[in-house]
Amino acid sequence: MRREVPIVICFLAGFFFISDFFIPEPHWTQIAHRVNQWAIIVIAFAYVLGVGNIVRVNSQVIKRKERDWGYKILLLSGLVLMIILGIGFGIKEGTTFNWIFMNAMYPMQATMFSLLAFYIASAAFRAFRIRTWEAALLGVTAVLVMIGRVPVGEFLWRPFPDFIEWIMNVPQLAAKRAIMIGAALGAISTGLKVLVGLERTYMGGE
């Protein structure tokens, strides 16, 4: 029963949402919309699980005084502080919660994101090393596209930007769409396997 009941629920819910795509009846659509809202509420409750996981994992490190346990105290203090500030004083503009978010969290996220520029450079350096025929083709195409996308490309050869557009819209897009079609079919197939209970690994329960 521990496995059958979730499979039946999964099957009914899945086919209900598939039917919503085909049934334009307003009441049906309204029910689907309502069930979607329930899902959002259930997901919101999952944050309690997330907080519980953070507290459990990090408090054990602190208790055992494992490596970097000091940082874990800082982490848990930050968690408690933000919960108190958020629930107690709100999260709107002008609150302490918002000030900490905008002046600590926001710049730290921007810092992480900006690292991407350096990583792109190092990854591109490795990708464009011409070691095989395919790598050579990739490197040459990349250089052509880069030149064609800046004014100097047009200066060198007037139809250069049009040629680059052709590369992007024909061979590049064809490959991209082939991957997308394959992935979409794979996704439908996985969905179907989950709905009919062929795929149960994620469910556990043994």
Binding site: L49, G50, Y202, G205
Partner: peptide, 20 residues
């Protein structure tokens, strides 16, 4: 894990793997 809702599913998947 990045999303809290994924945590229990991942726990079950891992637990199941060890049981199997």
């Amino acid at each position: 894990i990045c999303r809290p809702f994924v945590v229990p599913v991942a726990e079950e998947a891992v637990k199941q793997g060890y049981i199997k």
